Amino acid sequence: DRHTIHIGDITIHLEGFSEEELKLAEELIKRGIHLEEVKRILEELYR
């Protein structure tokens, strides 16, 4: 499954994450956390 996060003019595609995980990812990215770090956090929390 493919999910999309929109932040301003930026569109990020993250596959294989639930709606809850994507909301967390979006919040972290909006707070300035680097995408690679966001992915690592999600994997630690949900895998």
Rank of each mutant, 00 (worst) to 15 (best):
H6N: 11
I41V: 05
E19V: 13
E21V: 14
Y46F: 14
G16E: 05
G8C: 09
G32D: 02
E26C: 13
E37D: 11
E26Y: 15
H13T: 13
H34Y: 05
E20R: 06
E44P: 00
L45P: 00
E20M: 10
G32L: 09
G16V: 11
I5M: 04
E15V: 13
F17Q: 02
I41N: 00
L14R: 01
I29P: 00
K39M: 15
L35V: 07
R47M: 14
E36L: 13
T4V: 10
I41G: 00
H3Y: 07
G8T: 06
H34Q: 12
E44K: 06
R2M: 14
G8H: 07
L22C: 06
E19A: 13
D9W: 12
L35I: 13
E26F: 15
L42A: 00
R31D: 03
R40Y: 05
G16H: 07
T4F: 02
H13W: 11
G16F: 11
K30I: 09
A25C: 02
R2I: 12
H3K: 03
S18N: 11
T11H: 11
I5N: 03
G16C: 06
E36F: 14
L45Y: 08
I12H: 04
K23F: 08
L35S: 03
L22F: 11
R31K: 06
D1C: 11
F17W: 10
A25D: 00
D1K: 04
H6I: 11
E15L: 14
H34R: 10
F17A: 06
I5S: 05
H6P: 04
S18G: 11
K23C: 02
E27Q: 11
E36A: 10
I7T: 06
G16P: 02
E27G: 07
R47N: 13
L22D: 02
L28Q: 00
E26P: 01
D9L: 12
H6M: 10
E44V: 07
L24R: 04
E27M: 15
I33E: 03
E15K: 13
I10N: 08
L42F: 02
Y46S: 04
Y46I: 14
G16D: 05
A25G: 05
R40A: 06
Y46M: 11
L42E: 00
K30D: 02
I29V: 09
H13I: 13
E26Q: 13
L28K: 00
E26M: 14
G32S: 04
H13R: 12
G8R: 02
E21F: 15
T11I: 09
E27T: 15
R31G: 04
R40N: 02
T4C: 12
H34C: 05
I7C: 03
L35E: 04
D1N: 10
H13D: 10
D1I: 10
E43K: 04
I10L: 10
I10M: 11
G16K: 06
E20C: 12
K23G: 05
E21D: 06
I33F: 15
I29H: 02
F17V: 06
K39Q: 09
K39R: 09
H3D: 09
I29F: 15
I10S: 07
R31I: 03
I5P: 04
H6A: 12
E43F: 15
E43P: 00
V38F: 09
G32V: 07
H34W: 08
D9C: 07
G8P: 04
I29G: 01
H13C: 05
L35R: 03
A25T: 03
D9A: 13
V38K: 00
L28F: 12
I41S: 01
K30Y: 15
H6D: 08
E15C: 12
L14N: 01
E27D: 07
I10K: 09
D1F: 01
R2N: 13
L14E: 01
I12E: 02
K39L: 15
L28N: 00
H6F: 04
E20D: 09
I10G: 06
L22Q: 07
V38A: 02
R31L: 12
G8Y: 08
H13Y: 13
E44W: 15
G32K: 01
T4P: 11
L24E: 02
V38L: 11
E21C: 01
R31C: 12
H6S: 08
I41E: 01
E20W: 14
E37G: 03
E21K: 03
I10D: 06
R47H: 14
R47S: 10
L14H: 02
R31W: 15
H34A: 13
I12Y: 14
T4H: 10
I5L: 02
D1W: 00
G32C: 05
R40C: 00
T11S: 12
G32N: 04
V38C: 01
E26L: 14
L24M: 13
E36Q: 08
R47I: 14
R31S: 06
L35N: 03
E44M: 10
D9Q: 08
E44Q: 06
T4D: 08
H34F: 07
R31Y: 15
H6E: 09
E20T: 12
E26I: 14
H3Q: 04
G16T: 10
K23L: 08
L45M: 04
E43D: 09
E37R: 09
Y46Q: 11
F17M: 06
E21M: 14
L22K: 09
R40K: 07
I10T: 11
L22H: 08
G32M: 12
E44S: 03
R47D: 04
E15H: 12
A25P: 00
K30N: 10
E15Y: 15
G8F: 08
E36C: 07
L45F: 06
D1P: 03
R2S: 11
V38S: 00
E19S: 13
L35K: 03
I41H: 01
K39N: 04
D9F: 11
I41R: 02
I33T: 07
E43W: 15
L14W: 08
E37M: 13
L24Q: 05
I5H: 04
I29L: 14
E44F: 15
K23E: 06
A25W: 07
V38N: 00
E27Y: 15
I29W: 12
L22P: 00
I10Q: 10
D9Y: 08
L24T: 11
L35F: 11
E44N: 05
I29R: 02
L35Q: 03
T4A: 06
T11N: 01
G8I: 07
G32Y: 15
E19P: 11
E26K: 14
E15A: 13
L22I: 11
R40P: 00
E36T: 09
I33L: 13
E20A: 09
E27C: 05
D9P: 10
T11D: 07
E19G: 11
G8K: 07
L45D: 01
R47Y: 02
R31Q: 07
R31V: 05
F17R: 03
E44Y: 15
T4G: 05
E36D: 10
K39S: 03
I12D: 03
K23N: 05
G32E: 02
K30R: 15
I12N: 03
T11F: 11
A25K: 02
H3M: 07
E21G: 13
S18Y: 06
L45W: 09
T4Y: 02
L35A: 07
R47P: 14
E20K: 09
H13E: 08
T4N: 07
L24H: 12
I12G: 03
I33P: 01
H3C: 02
E19C: 14
H13F: 11
E20H: 05
D9E: 11
K23M: 10
E21T: 12
E44A: 11
E15D: 10
E36N: 08
H6L: 08
I7V: 10
K23P: 02
R2C: 10
R2P: 14
I12F: 11
H13M: 11
I5D: 05
I33M: 12
I33Q: 02
K30V: 08
T11V: 07
H34L: 12
E27R: 13
H34T: 14
I29T: 04
V38M: 07
R2D: 10
I12C: 05
E15M: 14
G16Q: 05
E26R: 15
E19H: 14
I41T: 01
Y46V: 06
A25Q: 01
H34G: 13
E37L: 14
L24F: 11
L24I: 10
R31P: 02
I10H: 09
R40G: 01
R2A: 12
E20G: 07
G16I: 13
L14P: 01
L14D: 01
G32H: 04
E21P: 11
R2V: 13
L28P: 00
L45G: 01
L42G: 00
H34P: 14
R2Q: 11
V38T: 00
R2G: 12
F17S: 03
L24Y: 12
E44R: 06
L28D: 00
F17I: 07
L28Y: 10
E27F: 15
H34K: 13
E27A: 14
D9H: 12
E36M: 13
E19K: 12
E37N: 03
I41A: 04
I5C: 02
L42D: 00
I5T: 05
E15S: 13
F17G: 06
L28E: 00
E27S: 12
T11K: 07
T4L: 04
Y46C: 15
I10R: 06
L45K: 01
E37Q: 07
I12T: 04
E15I: 14
I10W: 13
I7Q: 05
L35G: 03
I5R: 01
R2W: 12
L28C: 01
I5Y: 01
L45H: 02
Y46K: 11
E43A: 12
I7A: 09
I7S: 08
D1Y: 01
E43I: 14
E43S: 05
L42C: 00
Y46H: 07
Y46P: 01
K39F: 15
H6C: 06
H34D: 12
G32A: 10
V38H: 00
E15Q: 10
E27I: 14
A25F: 12
S18W: 09
I5G: 05
V38W: 13
L45V: 05
V38D: 00
G16L: 10
E44D: 10
L35W: 14
V38Y: 02
L14G: 03
E37P: 00
I41F: 08
I41W: 12
G32P: 02
T11C: 00
E36P: 09
